[in-house]
Design a protein around this nucleic acid. Structure first.
Length: 429
RNA sequence: GGAGGCGUCGCCUAGUCCGGUCUAUGGCGCCGCACUGCUAAUGCGGUUUGGGGCUUACCCCCCAUCGAGGGUUCAAAUCCCUCCGCCUCCGCCA
């Protein structure tokens, strides 16, 4: 959530951000009035409670006749305190509910608009000209099936649509990608983490996934737990309710986990193959930093993603995601989109978000700093960036590195993790 | 799943039986100051977090906070209930 004080002090800035996100601007005014109620009811409660406390000290010492009088007043106070307490609780809850519905403040440089209004910042690598090479590229599923790497039919039989098996060399490819990604992250100073994938509501809510994204989240009713769509969730909640010394920052974690997404509202979209699936694994980078360093860290995360995709020899572009497509928690988001030959376009492979203090405030993760002998306590900033979302990376590798005979060249960085294999060859049936 | 134990302001800890003197004890650590060639030792002071007020600095004041939430009571760290977490044992199973 954003800082309430920001809404008080500069409501227009918050309104503008809401507008750019395409969200309800009226929320800001509702918040202002709820906040006002919260403060006035709080003051009333404090005063009554103060009187109640002083009475509580007098009663044991009072003479019998004084005592009876005091008790009468105390009896009255009891009811008043209770009422004031309820009023304060109500106003607090109202404020919090409204605040939770409010997205993060959009960075001023973010392009305004919806999904299509992104700005391309950079392009890397060279798109292959298959025409010049003399063959039509096969799509990833055709390649994957021929390699004995992907089995969609049995995935659907066992689990339903958008499920798959990675088999044989496909399974090995996943493990190779994960190991290579973890190795790169570890080299860069990240702490590798294997995280829980079932989390309690607070972790989900705290990372901002129960707002407009709630439809996309699996929930286990019986246990009131959520299946995470990314290890960002357990990594952000890892330091929930903690106070971290500023000199310990930045904290960088590379999480590896399964990810689960309902993909609600995507019917008919990317239905072929493993580009959009309900369950996949991902290596995610996550940073806790001083808010003053957030933008620099954001670019660092992006650099690590670029390093990764460059190593895999994939052509890609970097986009500055538009305001309406940011998700609740991001101030700004850079996506790396790899070229998918059979689609003739760039598709999202990684995504790096600067969440500012938004998640830290919801999860109560703060940093403590000693400035001139004085303790300064404030929420810190959290950022996340995909290093390797496995299925999409496999799609990109298969399609971009395919050869005329349906085999696939293994990029050099992956070879050590694939037993030295240089080429993946179709399985003869 | 069953039985028991535990949870106090960084860490450890007193207090809980028997409600008010708790404005939560003491130690360690840490911070500041003093003393001191330096360090150490010593002494004094400070050291939960959140909200609000006042000053748009400092200070000060009020309220909440003893795992969380409810309840009983004039009054709850203390009594009752629910939940969460941790530990031990039993059962079952990777």
């Amino acid at each position: 959530m954003i800082d309430l004080r920001l809404i008080r002090e500069d409501p227009d800035r918050v309104r503008a951000s809401q507008r750019n996100r395409g969200e309800d601007v009226a929320l800001v005014d509702a918040l202002l009035s709820a906040d006002e109620r919260r403060r006035s009811s709080g003051a009333a409660f404090d005063e009554l409670r103060s009187e109640q406390k002083s009475l509580g000290k007098l009663i044991p010492k009072a003479s019998p006749e004084e005592r009876a009088e005091l008790l009468t007043r105390a009896e009255q106070l009891k009811a008043d305190v209770r009422a004031a307490d309820a009023a304060q609780d109500e106003a607090d809850a109202e404020t919090r509910n409204l605040l939770l519905r409010l997205g993060n403040i959009v960075h001023p440089d973010v392009p305004v608009g919806g999904e299509e209004d992104f700005v391309v910042l950079e392009t890397h690598g060279t798109i292959r000209d298959f025409g010049a090479e003399g063959f039509e590229p096969r799509d990833h599923l055709e390649l994957g099936e021929a390699l004995g790497a992907i089995d969609m039919e049995r995935g659907a039989k066992v689990s339903g649509s958008r499920f798959y098996y990675l088999t044989g060399v496909g399974a090995l490819l996943e493990l190779a990608l994960v190991n290579a990604a973890i190795a790169q992250a570890t080299e860069a100073g990240f702490t590798p983490m294997l995280t829980p994938t079932l989390v309690r509501p607070r972790a989900m809510e705290g990372t901002g996934f129960l707002g407009q994204a709630a439809e996309d989240v699996y929930h286990l009713d019986k246990d009131d737990q959520y299946l995470v769509g990314t290890s960002e969730v357990p990594l952000a909640a890892y330091h929930m309710d903690e106070i971290i010394d500023a000199d310990k920052l930045p904290l960088r974690y590379a999480g590896y986990s399964s990810c689960y997404r309902r993909e609600a509202g995507t019917y008919g979209k990317d239905t072929r193959g493993i580009f959009r699936v309900h369950q996949f694994t991902k290596v995610e980078m996550f940073s806790y930093v001083d808010p003053a360093d957030a933008e620099t860290e954001h670019l660092r995360l992006l650099d690590w993603e670029k390093q990764w995709l460059t190593g895999l020899e994939l052509p890609f572009q970097v986009i500055d995601v538009a305001s309406g497509d940011l998700g609740a928690s991001a101030i700004r988001k850079y996506d790396c989109e790899a070229w998918i030959p059979t689609q003739g376009k760039y598709r999202e492979l990684t995504s790096a978000s600067n969440c500012g203090e938004f998640q830290a405030r919801r999860l109560s993760v703060r940093m403590r700093e000693n400035r001139d002998g004085k303790k300064v306590m404030q929420p810190l900033a959290t950022l996340n960036g995909t290093l390797c979302a496995v299925p999409r990376t496999i799609v990109a590798i298969l399609e971009n590195h395919q050869l005329a005979d349906g085999s696939v060249r293994v990029p050099e960085v992956l070879r050590p993790y694939l037993g030295g294999r240089e080429i993946l060859k179709p399985v003869v049936k």
